[in-house]
């Protein structure tokens, strides 16, 4: 049983009208009221705990200083600083929670809504002065409005004209052209025998190595013969080579993972899966369109080149990507 000798009898928690001490609402309260007693059952213990905690924080902050001076590793720095802050916080919270008046206290709260009279006075003042100062100067008000409106429109110019170029045609083309050499990231032109069956590398046109939009995956799916992925693409895959835009048609990530056994390309961002043999058509995940295919040929010296650029915009969709081949109408 807790010791109850010094505390008044318990009260109903929901008794709104009866106050234990201090009389009725609004009357003065003496500091002798039990609400001013400290909250702790054993104030000495709470004080001791807070003192220990402050001392610990004192030591930790000192340790942090020493650690910083000696260029200690991250964990020593952080633990000394963290323990210092945390102990300081524990001490302060202990102080506030256990060694201060336990309450409860209250303060009155006015209703937020104003009275009709308050509102009428405010609106009246505002409107009557406005009448004198503004309504009689209608032309001035209109001119001010016109000048402000022009400023508002003009202020948009730097936003729309300086931040960046207009898209124009750049959404529809990459740097791949007729005759572009397939070039690896280290700048070497890719020759016919560079990749074995099942191999994959990322290639660029020779004038845009590393380009974010012209990045293309080159896959060798078989040793010989043209790979045909669809009608009209009979000559696009010479000697077992296929090339597709590496920019995912879903959200633009590089489609970087090739599963050799199933001939599938996987985008690691949202797991769209493309079937290489049928022209990188999406077979799984959120990608809505195939990866555009780059038509290839082998030149007289045995290097791989592009027959033309991509025949549709690469990458994710956008508002102006209309029509069957994606060109603007």
């Amino acid at each position: 049983m807790p010791d109850t000798t010094d505390t008044p009898a318990p009260e109903e928690p929901h008794a709104g009208s009866g106050h234990a001490t201090g009389g009725a609402r609004g009357e003065p309260v003496s500091l002798d009221a039990p609400q001013f007693a400290v909250a702790a059952r054993h104030p000495r213990r709470a004080e001791g705990a807070a003192a220990v905690s402050f001392f610990l924080s004192f030591l930790s902050f000192a340790a942090f200083g020493a650690a910083y001076w000696q260029a200690a590793p991250n964990d020593v720095l952080g633990i000394s600083l963290g323990v210092g802050f945390a102990a300081f916080g524990v001490a302060l919270v202990t102080w506030g929670k256990y060694l201060m008046p336990r309450g409860p206290f209250e303060e009155p709260r006015p209703q937020m809504a104003t009275t009709p009279q308050e509102r009428a006075e405010f609106v009246g003042d505002f409107a009557s002065r406005g009448k004198v100062a503004i309504e009689r100067r209608g032309a001035l008000a209109k001119l001010m409005g016109a000048a402000g409106a022009v400023l508002g429109i003009v202020a948009l110019f730097p936003l729309v004209r300086s931040l960046g170029p207009k898209p124009n045609g750049s959404m529809y083309h990459t740097k791949w052209r007729k005759g572009s050499r397939l070039t690896s990231i280290d700048g070497r032109a890719v020759a016919l025998d560079d990749i074995e069956v099942g191999g994959i590398i990322t290639v660029f046109p020779e004038n845009d190595v590393g380009g974010a939009l012209s990045q293309t995956v080159l896959i060798r799916v078989q040793q010989t013969g043209d790979v045909v992925t669809g009608p009209g693409k009979e000559t696009w895959g010479p000697h077992g080579y296929l090339a597709f835009s590496k920019v995912c048609t879903h959200a633009g990530c590089p489609v970087g993972l090739y599963q050799e056994l199933t001939h599938q390309l996987l985008c690691p961002c949202h797991q769209s899966l493309f079937d290489v043999d049928t022209g990188a058509t999406p077979v799984f995940g959120p990608a809505p369109r195939p990866l555009p295919q780059l038509p290839l040929y082998v030149d007289s010296k045995g290097y791989l080149r592009a027959q033309a650029g991509f025949d549709e915009p690469i990458g994710p969709g956008f508002w102006y990507r209309g029509g069957s081949n994606g060109s603007p109408q």
Partner: peptide, 13 residues
Amino acid sequence: DQPELAPVDVEKV
């Protein structure tokens, strides 16, 4: 071990 107390008005101390 402490009973529920009624709140006192902080401005009326």
